[in-house]
Computed example of a mutant assay.
Amino acid sequence: MCTAKCSRCIAVTLYPLAVISIICNIVLFFPAGDVQYAKDGHITEEVKYMGGLIGGGVMVLIPALHIHLTGKQGCCGNRCGMFLSIAFAAVGVAGALYSFVVAVVALNNGPLCKVLLLWATPFKDSEKSYLTDSSVWWQCTAPEKIVEFHIGLFSTLLVTSCLQLILCASQMINGLFGCLCGTCTNKGPL
């Protein structure tokens, strides 16, 4: 496959992944669909790190735009553009790694929830993982179904960031080939 076409395919795949990351991070601010928890500051600490919004969102979306341009004819569809795509893809790798690390830490620590009368992270530093033992989820009394909410969205961020990492790393390799060998874009009308 031509390096320019490969760049376009990678960029087109990165767009929805970046949007999914942004949406997941925004939704995480509203457990049980209620704004009150965010107002009161009762949201999981890792949500505030905005791994999905900044890392998997903006830091992947901007490189995706440039990578898409390298696949087109014109100013960016040349060896220099492919060289720059390597740098932009490296920014995407950094963003995806940030999102990945935040999601892993969040899944490891568990959600912030109301346990009896106090707000705490009951599964943090516990001997058994709450991820494999759903019988301990009852400890979280509020927000409603917070454990499922937390696992679902942070798992989505985890998978999304893995895919972004693979795509951005492959664009770095593709950009290297495009820089060394050219983009092989057609010069004539299509």
Rank of each mutant, 00 (worst) to 15 (best):
C2T: 14
T3D: 07
K5H: 13
A11V: 03
V12S: 03
Y15P: 01
P16Y: 00
I20A: 06
S21T: 14
I23V: 14
C24Q: 02
C24I: 12
V27D: 06
L28M: 14
F30T: 03
D40R: 06
H42V: 03
E45C: 01
V47P: 01
K48L: 08
K48I: 04
Y49L: 04
M50K: 04
G51P: 00
L53H: 02
L53A: 05
L53R: 00
G56V: 04
G57N: 05
G57F: 01
G57K: 02
V60S: 08
L61I: 03
I62C: 05
A64V: 02
A64D: 00
H66C: 04
H66F: 13
H66N: 04
H68P: 00
L69A: 10
G71L: 02
G71I: 01
G77C: 09
G77T: 13
R79N: 03
C80S: 05
G81T: 00
M82S: 12
F83E: 07
L84T: 04
L84E: 04
I86N: 09
F88I: 01
F88C: 11
V91C: 14
G92H: 06
G92K: 09
G92R: 10
V93P: 03
A94E: 11
A96K: 13
A96L: 14
Y98P: 01
F100K: 14
F100W: 12
V102Q: 02
V102T: 04
A103R: 02
A103K: 00
V104S: 07
N108W: 09
N108C: 08
N109E: 10
P111E: 03
C113F: 11
K114R: 15
K114L: 08
V115H: 02
W119H: 13
A120S: 05
P122L: 05
K124Q: 09
E127N: 09
K128A: 09
S129E: 09
T132G: 13
T132A: 12
D133S: 11
V136I: 14
V136Q: 11
W137S: 10
W138Y: 15
Q139D: 06
P143Y: 03
V147H: 12
E148R: 14
F154Y: 15
F154H: 13
S155I: 09
T156D: 07
T160H: 03
T160M: 13
T160K: 08
S161I: 07
C162H: 14
Q164Y: 05
L165R: 12
L165F: 15
L167N: 13
Q171A: 12
N174C: 11
L176G: 15
F177T: 08
C179Y: 05
L180Q: 07
C181D: 12
T183I: 10
T183A: 15
C184R: 15
T185Q: 07
N186F: 05
